[in-house]
Amino acid sequence: MAFVFSRLDDLATWAQTHSLSFLFLDLSCCGIEMMHTTGGRYDLERFGAVQVASPKQADLMIVAGSISYKYAETLKKNYEQMCDPKWVMAIGSCAGSGGMFEGEFSYSTVSGVDKILPVDVYVPGCPPRPEAIMHGLLTLQKGIVKCRAQNSWKDSKTSSPEL
């Protein structure tokens, strides 16, 4: 019986990792690479990730680009509207650490989305290539499998920020 349930759990894990609906926040030029990734040539949808228009339907938030202080509030509100379990991907140097707008270089830019939200996967690059973004998504899928294997995705997420 335990065998059947463990197999069912594997099935549920497979279903969850391969049906990620993501909310895509295109904040600057990294958004162009992200659009390219979802387009016909690279086609992110073959990994099961599909773009949705509303944060209420999404379980993955992809932040691509630099975040201004004015936009930070909106970003937080979007994250709060998403249902648990939820993940965040930071694409590009700006979303990762502030990039070229970090600290003394800009008065209005947040130094990384991790100042506001818990980030699961960082994709470095300025901007990263579509292959890198795809690798980021596959890394996230592996991380979700790992967390589900521990059967406590929430605890593991709060105790260690990296999946």
């Binding site: 202080y69 970090e102 600290g103």
Partner: peptide, 15 residues
Amino acid sequence: PGGYSGIAHGSGVER
């Protein structure tokens, strides 16, 4: 600014 609405400015890493 040192920060805005609770978000600290800069990454804290010396450049």
